[in-house]
Structures are given as structure tokens and as C-alpha cells.
Amino acid sequence: MKTQFIVFIAALGLACNTVAGQDLHWGQLQKDQQHFIAAKFGADYATTLGLAYGYRLAKTQPAFISAEFSVPFGTNILDDWKFRLAYQRRVWQGGDLALSLRPGMIVRTYASNIAKILNVGLELNTSLGYYRPKWFLAVEAGVDHTLASKLKQGSLKENYPGIYEGWIGSTGGNFKFGANVGHSLGKQLVSLRLGKVYAQNFRDNPTLPFYFELALLKIW
């Protein structure tokens, strides 16, 4: 736990020089800005910490490739984690309004005495925002769909020796609906995302039915 906090604080320090915005502040994107990093704290099915890096594909294009790694809190630091690789792009701009899309893939793991799971999924997020120089406000929606999971059973195997181990197909997915606000503080910008999570059938909803994310981001 202490290590997680140290990593998070160090990442915040890195991010606090000049900050543009979370995922991203399309209204402030400059031609010479090609990289971003972000440090994140939030709730994403569990309480989590995350780091993200993005690389701009071309100076003339408002498009980035980004990678994000996050872990939930807990005494076992790397037993559960989520890695996202995404392509994010502003697809429309009209005045201060902008629409962006972010398709991507997810690799995540889970481990406990019950079982170990490696899962691969796809996600698509979109946001429509109002971007001013010092702040922005966006509404967002996303879908996360699982493709396949590899299971290695733990204590469940003691209860049920015939339980299957190996690859299984899709185990479902979820939707997220929420809002994202960002505000500049000098050369820094803090963003906050908040929203609701639904299972894909809108019935089997998660125990923590909301997400939030506090992020500091630096772009250069």
C-alpha cells in the first residue's frame, strides 16, 4: 500500500508542471504538443490508482495513442491490474464544442484464493464537451465488452474438482455514463470524472455502481 502511494505521489509530481486536461482538453491542444502523461485516483469497480501515457500520431491530427495501467488498492499490489491501449481522436469540432471517440482494447487480470483470471476486452468511449481555455465540461458514455478470459481455479477446485480451467468466451460487458470536468490552476489542470456503471443487461449491476476518477495530466 505504501509503495502504491509513493508511486502515485511521484506521478502527481511529474504531472503538476503544465497540465492540459483529462482525456484530453481538446480545446487547448497545441500543434507542438505530442505527449501526455496522467496520474489517476478513482473508483473503477474497486478503488484504484493509475498512470497513463499518450503519444500524438501527427502534429496536424488531433489523435493520440494512449496506454493506461491501473491497479486496485489492497495488500497484494499487482495481483489485479488493468491495461488499456486506446486510440483517441477528436472527430468533430464546432466552436467550443468537440466530440471525441476512444476505441481501445483492455487486458486485465484478477487473482485471489478463489481463482486467477486473465481477460481481454474491447471498449469504446465517446465524449461531447464544451471546452474553454481555463475549463471544460463534457458528458461521456462508454461500453466495455469482454472477448475472452483464461481461468485458473483456486479454492473453487477443492469444492468442485471437475471445474473447467482454460479459455472461455465472452462473459458480458458494461456501460458507463457520466460527466468529466476540468479546471486549469495556473499551468496545471485537474479533471474529475463521475458517472454510473451498468451491466450490459442493466440488471446485473455492479456492487459499486458508480465510477469516479480524479486525474492530473501533463501534456507537452
Binding site: Y45, T47, G74, D80, R108, S112, D144, T171, N201, D204
Partner: peptide
């Protein structure tokens, strides 16, 4: 306890098993 291993052991898989109606999965 929001920052406990016990919590994420219980709820983190909910992002993987999510929204399938079949009782075997639930």
C-alpha cells in the same frame, strides 16, 4: 473497507462477469 484487498477480491471480477443472464455465470 474501501481500500482493502478483501473488497477488490470480491468486486473486481464484476467488470469481467457483467450482464450475462445465465444463472450458471451469475
Amino acid at each position: 473497507k474501501f481500500f482493502s484487498e478483501a473488497l477488490n477480491d470480491a468486486v473486481y471480477p464484476e467488470q469481467i462477469f457483467s450482464g450475462r443472464d445465465e444463472q450458471e455465470i451469475l
